[in-house]
């Protein structure tokens, strides 16, 4: 699994619960080290072990944890760069939804060896969508529920999201776009000093 994924879990725990809790997770998962390197590749079996350890240490249900990580990825100020990259997907939330199919390719453009879950958006009517996700780690539907919730906030859209379960490894998230311009949303300027 790519270091970026493991590192994201680490940063979620550190930024939300502190270094001591992360150190406990590292011990619980029997990592043998504390810091994940973002640009290294780790054994695939490590990531589920770390997630299980996080649940154990924080005493949180797995699905809820995954959704929280998704929300964290978009909304925490320490990960502003990631929010910006996602905002390049579209000028409004609807546009963003339609760009989700491209997300794994976009990620690969940035980091060639980063493999994201396969995702597919289905449009049932202009206000009803569903997102199918299939990843190597269970719970990626919950993760995307968190991501979508935070992105809707970011765009100022009012949405209703519901994880509809798993079928043959594919998780489905129902998306109801109730109002595209519900609130102000956060600003996004194309150019920033990088």
């Amino acid at each position: 699994m790519h270091g970026l994924v493991n590192r994201a879990i680490q940063r979620f725990v550190v930024d939300s619960y502190g270094n001591a809790q992360w150190a406990a997770v590292a011990r619980n998962a029997d990592l043998g080290f504390v810091e994940f390197e973002a640009m290294w590749t780790y054994e695939d079996s490590l990531t589920p072990r770390v997630l299980a350890a996080v649940c154990d240490v924080l005493d949180r249900p797995y699905d809820e944890l995954m959704e929280d990580i998704g929300t964290y990825l978009v909304s925490h100020p320490n990960l502003e760069a990631l929010r910006r990259l996602l905002r390049f997907g579209g000028v409004n939330f609807l546009d963003f939804l339609h760009s989700l199919d491209d997300l794994p390719d976009r990620a690969r453009l940035a980091v060639a060896d980063l493999v994201l879950p396969r995702i597919e958006l289905r449009e049932h009517n202009p206000h009803q969508f569903s997102l199918n996700c299939e990843g190597d780690i269970p719970g990626c539907g919950h993760l995307f529920t968190g991501v979508l919730r935070a992105m809707a906030d970011d765009y100022g859209a009012l949405v209703f999201l519901e994880h509809q379960g798993v079928e043959e490894g594919v998780e489905t998230v129902a998306i109801a776009l109730l109002e595209a311009d519900f609130a102000e949303g956060r600003g996004f300027e194309l150019g920033v000093s990088v």
Partner: peptide, 24 residues
């Protein structure tokens, strides 16, 4: 253009992560 701006930012972020790794 938007894709190019996306790439510039994504690559800068990836380079920064690599730079930090190198310095560590």
């Amino acid at each position: 253009t938007i894709e190019m701006l996306y790439l510039v930012e994504a690559k800068s972020a990836a380079m920064e992560a690599s730079r930090q790794l190198n310095s560590r």
